[in-house]
Amino acid sequence: MTAILESSRIAKSFSGIQALTDVSIDVMEGERVGLIGPNGAGKTTFFNCLLGVLTPDTGTVRFHDRDISELPVHKRAQAGIGRTFQRIELFSDTTVREHLLIAERVHNERGSFWKDLIGRGRPQADEIDRCDAVLELLGLAELGDEPVEALSLGQGRLVEVGRALMTEPSLLLLDEPSSGLDREETAALATTLREIQAEKGFAILLVEHDVDLVADFTERLYVLDFGSLIAEGPTAETLQHPAVRTAYLGTLEVGDQEAMP
């Protein structure tokens, strides 16, 4: 298996606060990787550095064997990195289905100014079908025509995931997708992601505080603390690492909550 994402020695500081120190994380094709760490460890900052939302002080990002360190955010997205946001980011004043339609249109690059002018810019039947299929998968079919402001937090999360999926990424960065979802929905989301992933073969990099989800869903794990990697390796082993326990898990026994159905 080849690495699709290779980030090496990424560092970032904010006016005196060292948020990331020499973090190198690789993701293989089709792999599910977890990234955990205490609050403020730098996980979100790392995502933002990968995507170019923040410019890292040092370090390079390679994606599909191509150096993307200098590309602007939208180019990286077009190259195949999808993401969701820790703090939910939806397009206000837009319905759920339109969210996906916009993403679909950007992805299939069918839109153009001139096509708009001659009236060929409206959503086409096949695009709507694809969106509805994804809505169905995420259990949002009934909410298609709701404006996103009318959604609860958890429903909004799912819309974000759906929007990212529409761009058919080869790597999906998920920042706490389960926050705001209850356990059943978290489990359902994990199942759905697995299914879609099996079908499309994209890789996932997951940031999450729901340790059960991490344990269950990811194959490999990186642990950040104070901006540096303190452990990495296969998930089950890494979770047993003593440093991880003291820095992050506390008394939590992995798997001690209700088992996932």
């Binding site: 995507l51 939302v53 602007p72 955010v73 939208h74 180019k75 997205a77 077009q78 999808g82 993401r83 946001f85 980011e89 939806l90 397009f91 206000s92 004043d93 837009t94 916009i102 993403a103 950007v106 992805h107 974000e160 929007r163 990212a164 529409m166 761009t167």
Partner: peptide, 11 residues
């Protein structure tokens, strides 16, 4: 207009 970061994130 809704969210610039999100718009960028889908390309």
């Amino acid at each position: 207009r809704g969210s610039e970061v999100a718009a960028e994130s889908i390309g």
